[in-house]
Simulated scan of single mutants.
Amino acid sequence: SHHKCAGRANWGRTRETLALIEALAQRQRIALDAYPYVAGSTLLREDLVDGVIDVLLTWSDPHPGMAGRLLSDIARAWGCTEQQACLRLQPGGACYFQMHEEDVERVIAHPLSMIGSDGLPHDRHPHPRLWGTFPRVFARYWRERRLFTLEQAVHKMTGMTARNLRIAGRGLLRAGAMADVVVFDPASIADTATYEQPRGLSRGIDQVFVNGVLTYRGGDSAGVRARAGRMLVRGA
């Protein structure tokens, strides 16, 4: 968690890492997760600023107005290096475009791979994965790229996760299970969140039920006030 090959020197090495995981899976239970983007997101760190990859600033305490801009553009405007700009902007957060799309696809399509968002809701300019991860899997990796079937896509986001994390009564539609249900149109579901506009509401989702309670309807949750979620605690 999360499986990726970050940095140009590691691009393509998922062929090696996935083969190793498959070998280990013959001896013990193993799984992995991934998010469907080529950029990761974490704190603003100078060791991740190499002058090669794009770095998008998501927040900065000393310079909040710079959020949403590329570090290279900020450095150019300030007449300094990206490393110097990074230090001036700290503490802050950023999206790092470290991965290659072929590696992302290889990992997401793997039979042992689950889908996770790794979204950070406190960011002032969040990574689009916070809003768009799961619809993006349907739109890009199932409908467009055909990396797996619709049923496999759903399972990677629901039943497989519940099973691997040992969360009882979740992830499957069956009598006696908690009624966590998303009603969506397979032909139109899609993410709209981008790095520039990361809070875009996804399309094609008609209703969401949490613990059997309607919490989202018709593209706008403004009229639905129910808060039926609860903390899930794994037993010892």
Rank of each mutant, 00 (worst) to 15 (best):
R163S: 15
C5T: 01
G219S: 00
E151Q: 13
D50A: 06
R29V: 14
E22W: 12
R69T: 00
A94I: 03
G40T: 04
C80E: 05
V233E: 02
M66N: 11
P135M: 01
P135H: 00
R225Y: 08
D33R: 00
I74S: 07
R234C: 08
G171D: 04
Q98I: 06
L112N: 08
G219N: 05
L48D: 03
H110V: 04
A175T: 08
H122C: 12
F209P: 15
K4V: 15
I108F: 00
L87Y: 07
F148Q: 05
S113K: 01
P62K: 02
V183H: 07
G176V: 10
F148M: 02
M178I: 11
W131L: 00
L71P: 15
S72E: 04
Q98R: 08
R143V: 04
N10W: 13
F184A: 01
R225K: 14
M99Y: 03
F184S: 11
H127W: 01
G65M: 00
L150S: 10
R199L: 02
P186D: 00
A139H: 11
S41G: 09
G200N: 11
L48G: 01
I108E: 06
L70Y: 11
A19R: 01
N10V: 10
M231E: 09
G169F: 10
M178V: 13
I189G: 14
E22D: 14
L44F: 02
V55S: 08
L165C: 06
R129N: 10
H127F: 01
T215H: 07
R143K: 06
R203A: 09
D180Y: 01
F148R: 05
A179C: 03
V181R: 00
